[in-house]
Amino acid sequence: MAGAHKADASLAKGGSSIEAAFVEESGYHTLPSCRLYWSLDADVGVELIAKAMSRDTFEEILRFLPSTDNQALNKDQHISLDEAMIEYFATGTIRDNRIPKTCPINSTNEMKKVPRRDIDVVVDNIHKILLVCWKDNAVVSVVSNISPVYPLESLSRWSAKDKKKISVSRPYLIRDYNRHMGGTDRMDQNINCYCISIRMKKWWWPIFFWVIDATIQNCWLLHRVDESNLSLLSFKRYIARTYLQKAEPRLGIGRPRQSSLVIPDVRCDSIGHLVESLGKQAWKCALSSCKSRPSQGCMKCGVPLCVKCFANYHRRAL
């Protein structure tokens, strides 16, 4: 396909870096339509993006990302088509009503009757999931596919019944959960502050964009070790501007276009509309009925105009 070859050529020239920089900028510079970033209107257009990559090239790359030949897939691989499309490793608490009734683990009510520090464990060998119920001050249910039960950790707890401190054994995965709890929530909060705003029809685009956002968020956390005062917004802007400014400026930007709209209240206010020289011939006069190529225009409206069209353009009706 010609489009695929064009996209591959753009990627080979560093288009993927520019593409990533642009989608990241959309997280803190949000517009209702992707094409508005290439608009000539001052309130929406982004010159840095327009100079780095054309709109058509950007859309062409989006069509063919990720660059994978589905006909060349290894048919011996197991491909998941259910909800678990992305394998991940985690440890977290789980409510009783989320545990299947067929699971042989003791319920919370049953665990309340056992002595403090008792542990009940169930392992799902098929899905590699570990479920643990632990009796402390209250019953804690934790599920994990990465942390083990052992080694047990001895804790000192005050016993209201015995009126003294007692030794309580705590599973390793409970310790692991307590140490890292809240990290996912903080990551989600950071990502949602400046998440990529571009929306596509393909179902996997949110996953693809989330990976980019999560990667930059993690890089920012590592960067804060040395630069603790740099905000996430400043970090993302630095990355986006660096890749966009490093891009080789486009030589041919296509046919020069006029601004899509000069607001009538500005165009017809009869204030400050002066003729200025453009220094070269424009592509076309801003008055739609005129086909000439003027070398002067309106200083306030910022459009090329013939001398004979100047007055007609600044009237209410065009």
Rank of each mutant, 00 (worst) to 15 (best):
T57N: 12
T91S: 08
Q77K: 15
K75R: 13
V23N: 07
S39Q: 02
L40E: 10
I94K: 04
L65M: 12
V122H: 12
P66R: 07
T57Y: 07
V132N: 00
T93E: 11
L81D: 11
V123R: 14
L130M: 05
C103I: 00
A9I: 05
R98C: 15
G14T: 05
T91Q: 07
V123E: 12
R98L: 15
I105G: 02
E83D: 13
E24Y: 04
N109K: 15
L11P: 00
L131D: 03
A7C: 03
K135Q: 04
D120A: 12
M53Q: 06
Y88P: 01
R117S: 15
V122I: 11
P104D: 00
T108G: 04
V142E: 03
V143E: 12
A72K: 12
V140G: 06
D56W: 05
L11E: 03
I79L: 11
D96Y: 04
L31Y: 08
V121I: 12
H127L: 12
N137K: 11
G15A: 04
V23G: 00
P32N: 13
V122L: 08
L81I: 14
Y37R: 15
S54Y: 00
T108E: 09
K51E: 15
F58H: 03
S26G: 00
E110N: 07
C133G: 09
V44K: 13
C103N: 08
P100W: 01
E59P: 00
T102E: 13
S107N: 04
N109C: 10
V46W: 03
C133F: 06
F89L: 11
E87D: 14
A21V: 05
H78N: 13
I105C: 02
I61T: 00
A42V: 11
A7S: 06
F22N: 06
K51N: 15
N125R: 15
Y28Q: 03
V114R: 14
F64R: 10
I99L: 01
A12R: 09
R63A: 09
K6Q: 14
P104W: 01
S17R: 11
